[in-house]
């Protein structure tokens, strides 16, 4: 007898909420990759849920460190972060205080190098050579190599224990579409997580996303959370007169 359609278990990566989606996949001392540029395109619900797990000694690869009281800044307030791998951390006074007091370690990484480290890590590429940073503090203690008369330095790919990303639209198989510049590091972070959890504003059924328009194929996403109303705080509202 053919089973009726409603008897078939529906395969889904969708979890009831951000808290449950982090169940069993966080531990002290882990390495995370987190998407976002400034406060644009950050996985708000997942960051809050990560804070609430109480997990500590985290190393977080993320372009920025949030601001006081929002984004990754929340995890700094609770002292859950041991080290940041970032290109720019200027908007956060709690960050500065912990950094100057030696409580927080920072690895400054050029923005393009950071994106490429995530991309490479996700693609099984343990290292790559780049001109970026040659002759600067960034190049110290790194292998230098000459290709065709130009000097490059070796940078390592990042394979994160856990990646947290923010999408605009997703289907329950984890296919993701980002919106505008909220894309930024999210697709790169999504690929480099051994486990990747995404939150999305809109969740649809498989088939409702045009395959040609999917930015992150679902293979990279293990768990999915619906966050229909993210706050989307803006750091600098700039407008012009009509």
């Amino acid at each position: 007898m053919k089973p009726r359609a409603e008897d078939k278990p529906v395969y889904t990566k969708l979890w009831p909420d951000a808290r449950s989606a982090l169940d069993g996949i966080v531990r002290d001392g882990m390495l995370l990759a987190v998407g976002g540029f400034g406060l644009c395109g950050i996985p708000e619900a997942l960051i809050l849920a990560l804070r609430d797990t109480g997990v500590r000694d985290l190393t977080i690869a993320s372009n920025n460190a949030g601001v006081d009281g929002w984004g990754l800044g929340l995890l700094l307030e609770t002292r859950q972060v041991r080290k940041m791998i970032s290109s720019y951390v200027g908007e956060n006074s709690e960050f500065e205080r912990q950094y100057l007091d030696g409580e927080l370690e920072v690895e400054f990484c050029p923005q393009g190098t950071l994106a490429e480290r995530m991309r490479a890590g996700g693609a099984g590429i343990p290292g790559f050579y780049t001109r970026t940073g040659v002759g600067t503090l960034v190049a110290e203690r790194k292998e230098h190599k000459n290709f065709d008369g130009v000097t490059y330095i070796l940078e390592r790919g990042i394979e994160a224990d856990l990646a947290l990303v923010k999408a605009w639209k997703a289907d329950r198989l984890g296919n993701l579409i980002y919106r505008r510049t909220a894309r930024n590091f999210n697709p790169n972070a999504a690929t480099c997580g051994k486990v990747t959890v995404a939150e999305a504003e809109i969740i649809v059924e498989p088939g409702e996303l045009d395959p040609d328009e999917i930015h992150t194929p679902g293979i990279f996403v293990h768990r999915l959370v619906h966050n229909p109303h993210p706050e989307k705080r803006i750091e600098k509202i700039t407008t012009r007169e009509a």
Binding site: F37, G38, L39, C40, G41, E91, W168, R179, R180, T181, A182, K232, R233, I234, E235, K236, I237, T238, T239, R240, E241, A242
Partner: peptide, 20 residues
């Protein structure tokens, strides 16, 4: 350019984190 009042989109910023 910067958006008009009322056309600000939090998903659309530049590298200086300004709305564009």
């Amino acid at each position: 350019p910067f958006p008009l009042h009322g056309q600000v989109d939090p998903d659309l910023i530049n590298a200086g984190k300004q709305t564009v």
